[in-house]
Design a binder for these strands. Structure first.
Lengths: 155, 155
DNA sequence: ATCTCCTTCATACTTTTGGGTGATTTTGTA
DNA sequence: TACAAAATCACCCAAAAGTATGAAGGAGAT
């Protein structure tokens, strides 16, 4: 709505300036024709003025690019009860299994132990943990634990 | 350097288009003067063309406006202040160095990174961590971190 | 002085972890 | 049903972590 109004104003302004220029030229025609100014001079003047107008218009109307910046605002929680940070997990796109693996990891289990506990193979756990590290943007399980603790993915 | 080159090119392009327009107008003057087109028509054409040129120029040359959009994301923080459990550390007979190593471990650092940070060799850190694991009665660093968290040796 | 503990470092070896690739099956959803 | 994501597993290789053992210098206690 606001943009529309602005556009409207611009249009009026543009029209007015066109009209003013036409008047100016007509006046010039009367006053200075005797001096035998060639048509090219007028054309040049118009060209320059409207180029400037175009530049001004473009700068006024061009939309700014939007750059998103994420700020982490500390949210102080006083309760001892652990509340799983679902939002963060979703934002990172962590799957159920990956979260399970992460939580067992944080308990200090080895990959083999996690595999046994979840009744899957060691290789599977390795795949899960690799993806986990990618998503958390970490390199080691200890870093993953740090991250998870910080963002309330684990108690 | 590059911008200067670009500006140079733009200038040439601009000059050429001006010249082309002059020629075009001269030709129109010859061909269509009989039809008694008024000066305003020409002026209008020039105005429109050069407005567009101005817009194009501005868009080409101006830096894109950047508008930052800030998104705040809550980061859950436990308000309980951390108090190091001196008693427990003494009970287990942990040395200063071992506690240091343990705390860096919990931050997610690798042995090599800990060694660099403490200005000692990798082997030294291995020895420290081995002792640490013995005293904490754990087998892996992740378990050590769990233990340390549980007993308030680390935040 | 002697002893103990801490700290430092080395070498050799084993286990665990992690990266990369590829493949198959299951499952949820359009 | 068809498609995408999730879950499963295998194999190979490299890096990191962990174990065992030995050794040497320094600080503090007896």
């Amino acid at each position: 709505m606001r943009l529309r109004l602005k556009l409207y104003q611009q249009t009026i302004l543009y029209g007015l300036s066109l009209a003013a220029l036409a008047l100016l030229l007509r006046w010039l025609e009367f006053r200075l024709l005797i001096l035998n100014h060639s048509f090219e001079i007028y054309a040049g003047i118009i060209a320059v003025i409207f180029t400037l107008l175009g530049i001004w218009l473009a700068l006024k109307l061009s939309r700014p690019k939007i750059e998103t910046k994420i700020i982490e605002r500390p949210l102080i929680v006083n309760s001892t009860a652990f509340i799983f940070n679902k939002t963060f997990a979703q934002q990172l796109g962590l799957s159920k299994r990956e979260i399970e693996v992460l939580q067992l990891m944080a308990k200090g289990l080895s990959n083999q132990e996690i595999a046994d506990q979840l009744f899957v193979s060691l290789n599977t756990i390795k795949t899960h943990s690799s993806r986990l590290f990618e998503k958390l943007e970490v390199k080691r399980r200890t870093q993953a634990i740090e991250m998870a603790k910080k963002h309330a993915l684990i108690p």
